[in-house]
C-alpha cells in the first residue's frame, strides 16, 4: 500500500486508554469521517488493524499522530508502544507519517483562547458544527474522560498540522475574548 500521492486527505489518530480517536479530513476542512474506536482484547493489535482498515478505505496522503517532545507529558507504556508500532507499520507500508507534538497543539489552541481540552473541543465544534452532537459534557474531577474526547484530540492534531502548513485559520477561528 503506497499512499504517497498528495490527495489532500489526512487521517489523524489519537490513541486513548480505550482504543483510539480518529478523524479523516481534507485540507479544505471537510470532515469526511470521525469517531472513537473502542478496542476490547489486545488493544494495540486491534487498534492497529482498525487503523489499517481506515488507511485502506480512505487512502490518506499522510497519517497524523501525536509525538512527544522532551520533558513533555508522559503517555502510558502501552500507548508509547502503540505509537512506535504505528511508526514501524507506516514505514513498512510507505505511508507518510507526520508527528505533531502535544505542545504544538496546545500552543495553537491557546492562541485561539482555548486552554483546556473542553475549550479545545468547543472551539473545534464551532468550526465544524457537525461535531456539536459529539461534544462531551464538562468532565468532573471524579469522572473518566468521555470516549468522544479522543475524536476531538485527533481533529485538534489535524487542525494544528493544517495551520502550520498553510495558516488557513486566520479567518475561520475567531479568538476567544
Amino acid at each position: 500500500m503506497r499512499l504517497m500521492e498528495d490527495n489532500g486527505r489526512y487521517l489523524a489518530v489519537h490513541p486513548t486508554t480505550y482504543g483510539l480517536g480518529f478523524a479523516v479530513l481534507e485540507r479544505d476542512l471537510r470532515l469526511i469521517d470521525w469517531g472513537a474506536y473502542r478496542a476490547r482484547a489486545d488493544k494495540n493489535q486491534t487498534s492497529l488493524r482498525f487503523l489499517e482498515r481506515l488507511t485502506r478505505r480512505f487512502q490518506p496522503c499522510a497519517v497524523l499522530i501525536e509525538t512527544r517532545e522532551r520533558r513533555e507529558r508522559q503517555r502510558s507504556v502501552r500507548i508509547q508502544h502503540f505509537i512506535d508500532s504505528v511508526r514501524t507499520s507506516a514505514r513498512q507500508q510507505g505511508i507518510v507519517l507526520k508527528g505533531i507534538s502535544h505542545r504544538k497543539v496546545r500552543r495553537f489552541f491557546e492562541a485561539q483562547g482555548a486552554m483546556t481540552k473542553q475549550e479545545i473541543a468547543l472551539c473545534i465544534a464551532e468550526l465544524l458544527p457537525e461535531l456539536l452532537h459529539y461534544l462531551p459534557p464538562r468532565r468532573k474531577a471524579w469522572m473518566p474522560e468521555h470516549g468522544h474526547m479522543g475524536t476531538f484530540d485527533a481533529i485538534a492534531l489535524a487542525l494544528t498540522h493544517f495551520n502550520a502548513d498553510e495558516n488557513i485559520f486566520h479567518d475561520r477561528i475567531q479568538p476567544r475574548p
Binding site: E5, D6, N7, E26, L31, I32, D33, F58, E130, H133
Partner: peptide
C-alpha cells in the same frame, strides 16, 4: 486534481446523526 472518494455517504449520514 485531488482524487475524491467514491462516495461521501458516510460523511452525510454521520452529519445527520442517523
Amino acid at each position: 486534481m485531488a482524487q475524491r472518494l467514491e462516495n461521501y455517504l458516510r460523511t452525510f449520514r454521520k452529519r445527520t446523526g442517523l
